[in-house]
């Protein structure tokens, strides 16, 4: 497995408030990492450090393959958008191609076909000309997912991707992620450890520090050992691979 990104001794936060302390982490080709942790534990901060939105106070991020820096697709938490902004779904999706283009370059017919193809996959083909004020939260989330993958990134980062989508699309989305995971490494933040662990390969517990658990099965004792106090709601014999039977 090829190593893509290494976080070496990263300390990050806002002003004097340290959110992440001396974090070491490696991201490889075809990883599927579920990022879990309590509120305020630093899940989003970790993602923003990897994306370069927040500069770390200490430590360094090493991009092993020089091209990787421009090859991250990102799905932010939906609620940060201005819903009244005058932009269409198609434009939102195509904006994901910005890293592949020169600043002054226009879109080609090919770019548009690529975007339409993705919209087709997520069931939004009839909405391409709708403005973002005219669609629902779940539809917006699908469009943003398309934006994240249109540049065919090496790493796909998803921050709470299922918050607004319905159950049907949630299932479809995990199917898509599994498919895409063959070509790209995926990092997914979720507060729902039950759902996350039935799809991911490894689990990263984030609470000021980061522990990467090399499996998708985790139990309360391990979480405690990782200093990652979150409740595992699902117990017993359920079709999740969350907990060992007890």
């Amino acid at each position: 497995m090829e190593e893509l990104i290494e976080l070496r001794n990263i300390t990050a936060g806002y002003d004097n408030n340290i959110i992440l302390d001396s974090v070491n982490m490696k991201i490889h080709d075809n990883d599927f990492i579920g990022v879990i942790g309590p509120n305020g534990g630093g899940k989003t901060t970790l993602i923003k450090v990897i994306l370069g939105i927040i500069k770390p106070m200490k430590g360094e991020i090493i991009f092993k393959n020089n091209k990787t820096k421009n090859l991250i697709g990102y799905l932010p938490q939906y609620n940060i958008f201005d819903k009244a902004f005058p932009i269409s779904i198609l434009e939102v999706v195509m904006s994901g191609l910005m890293s592949n283009k020169k600043l002054y370059q226009r879109y080609t017919a090919n770019d548009k076909a690529l975007a339409m193809n993705l919209l087709n996959i997520v069931g939004l083909e009839n909405y391409s000309n709708y403005k973002i004020s005219e669609i629902s939260g779940g539809q917006m989330q699908r469009a943003l997912l398309c934006r994240a993958v249109i540049s065919n990134p090496k790493i796909l980062i998803l921050d709470e991707p299922v918050t607004y989508v319905d159950n049907t699309f949630e299932k479809e989305m995990y199917g898509l992620l599994k498919e895409w995971n063959k070509d790209m490494s995926i990092i997914m933040v979720s507060h729902d450890i039950g759902i996350i662990s039935s799809h991911v390969k490894t689990i990263a517990c984030v609470n000021r520090s980061v522990y990467v658990h090399k499996s998708n099965i985790i139990d309360n004792e391990t979480l405690e050992r990782y200093n990652c106090p979150i409740d595992i709601i699902t117990h017993g014999r359920v079709p999740h691979r969350v907990l060992k039977n007890h």
């Binding site: 939105i53 890293s99 002054y104």
Partner: peptide
Amino acid sequence: IFMRPIYYIAFDKDYAQTNNK
């Protein structure tokens, strides 16, 4: 010349930042 990036910076500055140096 720069209509497209200006548009995206206005829409989602954080994303534009991750996407273009």
